[in-house]
Design a protein around this nucleic acid. Structure first.
Lengths: 223, 223
DNA sequence: TTGTACATCTCGGGT
DNA sequence: ACCCGAGGTGTACAA
C-alpha cells in the first residue's frame, strides 16, 4: 500500500466527470488497484478508482501526475501533484476477513429456523427465490395455505421497501390467487406505514439478531 | 489528519456488530471525527466510524486501544494496536470542493430547458414534487394535457427505478385520471424493460449531460 | 458479463 | 430529528 500526503489537483472523467482544485489530501493506492483520495472531512473519498484499475506515474512538463485508468467502464483519474509532503510504502500482511453479524441474511436464517417469529403456522419454502420480476427474500405459506412473501429489512423500512414488496406480491398474484405480503423489519418510516396500509400489505416487527461472535465472514478456525 | 500503519484487531458494535482478527491496516482519523480502517484491498474501509464520532486513546493492560464512539445511534469502534509501524500527522489545508458534472440534477435541468428532449409538446411543471407517497423527479403535462411523471436515472435503470415510477403514477392516478409514467435514462436492464411494458409505462433514452467544466459544486470564481 | 439487491451504506436536502 | 432519494455508489452472488 502506497500512502501519499500531497497538495494536488484532481481530474476525473468516466461515468461522470469532476474537477477538484488545489488542496492538501491523503492518497492511498492499494495493490489491487483501488485508489483513494481523501480530504480532511467525511467518510467518503472525494475521488477514487475501484479495484482493478491501473496506476502510472508520469512527469508532465514540470509536475508529477499520478494517473489511474479503469477499463470497462472507461474511467480516468489524474492527480497533479503540486507538492508532495510524504510518501510511505506499507507492506501490509493481512489474512483476516471481517466477521459481521446483524445482517439481513442472518434475519432470514433466524426466520427459517423459527418461523413462528412471523406468525403461528407460517411455513417458509424458498429463500432468495427468483420470481419473474425480482428476487423474493422468503417465500412461504401461512396456516390457511395462502402464499406469503416476506421482505426483510435489517433497519427501519422505507417507501422503497414497500414498493419492492408490492412488486413481488403483484408478480405472484398473476399466477397464484391471493398472495399476502409481509414487511419484516425493526420499524417503519411514517410514509412506509401509510403506503403499506393503502396497499393491504402487512408488517411484522423483527430485529436483526446479533450472534455472540463470528458471523459468516470468518469461521473460528479450529485447525 | 492522523494516519497510522499498524497491526491491530478491530471490534465494532452498533447498528451491526463485527470482529476482525489481527492484521496490518491503515487507519485514518479525520478532524471531523471520521475514522477509517483500510485493509490492503477494496475501495471500502473494512471498519469505520462516520463524521461526528469522538476518538480516545487508552492503555488497556499492556496494549494501546483506539476507541471511537458515536452517539445516536450508539456505536463503538475499538482498535487494539498490537504493533504500530508508523504514526503521521498531516495538517491538511483544503478549501476546495468537488465540482461534478453528469448528475441526475443536471439531467433535470437539461429537460427543463429543453422539454422537447422528452417528446414534442411536453411541458414540465414541477421538479422534486412531493406527492403523497414519495417525491417525483419531474411532473408535467403532455400535448394532450395528460399528467406525466418523469423518473430520471443517470445510469442504466433497473427494477427499482420502475417500481419507483409505478408508485408515483399510482399515487397520482387516485386523484387525477389517466397519468403517464416515463422512465428517462440512458438504458434499461432486461428486467426493467419487461416490467415497464407489463405496467404500461414508457421509456425515453436520455444521457446525462457533461458540462465543460465546473458542475454545481464550485463555480469558477471570477472575483 | 449482466442482473439484482444489500449496506454499520454515506450524503444532502427538505420539513 | 425524521423522511426521502441519489450515488462515478461499492460489493457479493447468481444466472
Amino acid at each position: 500500500m502506497l500512502t501519499i500526503f500531497a497538495r494536488c489537483k484532481v481530474h476525473y472523467d468516466g461515468r461522470a466527470k469532476s474537477e477538484l482544485g488545489p488542496g492538501d489530501r491523503v492518497i492511498i493506492i492499494k495493490p489491487d488497484g483501488a485508489f483513494l483520495i481523501h480530504q480532511n472531512r467525511k467518510r467518503e473519498p472525494v475521488n477514487w478508482q475501484p479495484p482493478g484499475s491501473f496506476v502510472t506515474l508520469e512527469e508532465r512538463g514540470d509536475i508529477l501526475v499520478l494517473r489511474s485508468v479503469r477499463r470497462k467502464p472507461k474511467e480516468v483519474l489524474e492527480v497533479e501533484l503540486e507538492d508532495v509532503y510524504l510518501v510511505s510504502v506499507f507492506k501490509a500482511e493481512d489474512y483476516e476477513e471481517l466477521a459481521l453479524t446483524g445482517s439481513e441474511a442472518e434475519m432470514a436464517e433466524m426466520i427459517f429456523n423459527n418461523p413462528g417469529l412471523i406468525e403461528p403456522g407460517f411455513r417458509p419454502l424458498f429463500r432468495e427465490k427468483d420470481i419473474g420480476h425480482g428476487i423474493v427474500d422468503i417465500l412461504g405459506r401461512d396456516e390457511s395455505g395462502n402464499l406469503v412473501v416476506l421482505e426483510l429489512k435489517r433497519r427501519k423500512a422505507d417507501l422503497h421497501a414497500v414498493s419492492q414488496l408490492k412488486r413481488y406480491v403483484e408478480a405472484l398474484k398473476k399466477e397464484y390467487g391471493r398472495v399476502r405480503g409481509i414487511l419484516v423489519a425493526p420499524s417503519l418510516t411514517s410514509g412506509a406505514k401509510k403506503l403499506l396500509e393503502k396497499e393491504g400489505l402487512e408488517f411484522k416487527k423483527v430485529e436483526p439478531p446479533k450472534r455472540e461472535s463470528s458471523g459468516r465472514g470468518r469461521q473460528t478456525t479450529l485447525l
